[in-house]
Simulated assay, not measured.
Amino acid sequence: MQSFRHFLSLFMLISIFATAPAIAKPVPVPATKPAIEQPKPASPLPKPEPKQSPTPEPQNMQKPERIYQAACLPLLQNEITGKVLPPVKEGQCEIRSPLEITAFNKPISIALDQPVTTNCTMAVALNEWVQQANSLAKTHLGSDIKTIGSGSHYQCRNVNNGANGRVSEHAFANALDIMSFTLTNGETTELAKDWNGKDKQKQFWRALHAKSCSLFMTVLGPEADDAHKTNLHLDMGCHGKSCTYRICQ
């Protein structure tokens, strides 16, 4: 009887364990996946700047005209003392290659009493004229020339300073007025008083007037008009269709 009870207790104990719910084993939790780094959006490419068409130049803008100047042979050969000046453009007056001359060096050094603005054509003629004038001075006055007394040279004006009329050759540095000469012996001769003065001065001025007419295109002296009673006007102006006609008064 006791053995039966013992068996029954054991049986019941086994039944309890058999029917007890099984202890759930912990379910393994999967490891957290690292967050996938999303790629950063690429920076937008800079938009190309729109091409700008070149700004058209205003129609009235012109390139500056090229300045042409010419060398002058007597100046290069040191027959004349002077220098080249910038081109002159003064209203109706224009000189491409003006010169400022102060002395002539042939046959001896002969100075001008003031710097004279002229052009190369006049400078060439004046260079020859001074040599002829000095030869006449030695013949009639017995001395070389030391200084030339000059009047008008470049002036932007009309003939005889008129309000109207044609433009003077002085306006193109193409003319020079001669007033007097100082000699190396100290004497002075002036056109105003010596054109009809003592014989030697009178002969000198009249011979110089005649010689000038073979070197210049225009020569105007005291017998031309009242405007030239005191000066001998010399210029290289063009007369006639072929520029070969000379005026000698």
Rank of each mutant, 00 (worst) to 15 (best):
M1C: 06
Q2D: 10
S3P: 00
L10A: 11
F11L: 10
S15N: 12
I16R: 10
T19V: 15
A20H: 04
P21D: 13
A22D: 12
I23D: 15
A24R: 10
K25N: 12
P28W: 05
A31S: 10
P34N: 06
A35T: 14
E37T: 11
E37Q: 14
Q38P: 00
P39V: 09
S43L: 05
S43R: 06
P44Y: 07
P48V: 03
P48C: 06
E49F: 03
P50S: 12
S53H: 05
P56S: 13
Q59C: 02
K63L: 07
K63S: 06
P64C: 03
P64I: 06
I67R: 12
Y68P: 00
Q69E: 09
Q69L: 00
C72V: 07
C72R: 04
L75A: 10
E79I: 03
K83Q: 13
V88S: 03
V88Y: 06
K89G: 00
E90C: 05
S97L: 01
P98T: 12
P98D: 11
E100F: 00
I101S: 06
T102P: 01
F104V: 05
F104W: 02
S109F: 04
S109N: 15
L112G: 05
P115H: 10
T117R: 15
T118Y: 03
A123M: 08
E128T: 09
E128W: 07
V130C: 04
A137K: 02
A137D: 02
K138S: 09
K138F: 04
H140M: 06
H140Q: 13
H140R: 10
L141M: 08
K146G: 08
I148C: 03
G149F: 02
H153Q: 11
Y154E: 08
C156Q: 09
N160A: 13
N161H: 12
V167Q: 14
H170E: 01
A171M: 04
F172L: 08
N174V: 03
N174W: 04
A175L: 09
L176Y: 12
I178Y: 04
T182V: 12
L183E: 09
E187M: 01
T188I: 08
T188S: 15
A192L: 06
A192R: 13
D194C: 06
W195E: 07
N196L: 07
G197N: 04
K198N: 15
Q201L: 02
W205R: 02
R206E: 09
A207N: 10
K211H: 04
K211W: 00
S212G: 11
S214C: 00
F216M: 08
F216Y: 07
M217Q: 15
L220E: 10
L220N: 01
P222A: 14
E223I: 09
A224K: 03
D225S: 15
D225A: 14
D226V: 10
D226T: 13
H228N: 08
N231V: 11
L234H: 02
D235E: 12
D235I: 02
M236L: 11
C238I: 05
H239A: 07
S242R: 05
C243R: 11
C248T: 08
